[in-house]
Amino acid sequence: MLKTRIIPCLDVADGRVVKGVNFVDLVDAGDPVESARAYDAAGADELCFLDIHATHENRGTMFDLATRTAEQCFMPLTIGGGVRTSEDVRDLLLAGADKVSFNSAAVADPDVIARAADRFGSQCIVCAIDAKTVATDAEGKGIKWEIFTHGGRKSTGIDAVEFARLVAKKGAGEILLTSMDRDGTRAGFNIAMTRAIADAVAIPVIASGGVGTLDHLVEGVTEGHASAVLAASIFHFGDFTIQQAKEHMATNGIPMRLS
């Protein structure tokens, strides 16, 4: 049986982990490669590096990170942030990434997904969607979500569910869905949005944004219908270990890879 994945995400700027990783035994908590090794040993199912500055000048740093991580971690690695063209995909794959995530570039031109998927296969093309709730029903439950770019500052007017369908049709292999309303709040995933999108597309959806407790991870899967859950702070700051998260999810009936 396929297992639900837990994916720790590391925000990286200029080659350093931004939020910091608070693990015992880490000599340099800011070194993404050392953090990656710790997560590998801890049983994470995949890893995600997000280049949050993503300026042209620091691309080389990201390639170097991918290379060094791939030398030491024999698990899937996704890299996102500042990916614009299928040449960028090629460079990151050659450096050691297994999957590459598009974000703003796909909003500007969804065909970039098709070009990259045709060339490298859907399996390595992730489309990140950052969305906010823009309409709710009488009970306050979200019913409409819109894509925002530039770290949530810029509205696009694009419906998130429609966009998810579009990029799936263009050949994205997976959607990394982040709730801009919930990101950083620790109030839990935006379940209504996650479910609406997971049910609208045939490809896996990774839920992201807002995890504060282990029950939130469970809800993302059981109520949000996500195939994988991504979290940063609860793992980085040592609130919970990957193993605790997996055991909690397994206890709640979700198939997990425990060993």
């Binding site: 396929l2 297992k3 199912d45 399996q123 896996p204 195939s227």
Partner: peptide, 8 residues
């Protein structure tokens, strides 16, 4: 979902 993606 297809692709079959993850640990089995």
């Amino acid at each position: 979902k297809v692709p079959h993606m993850g640990w089995n």
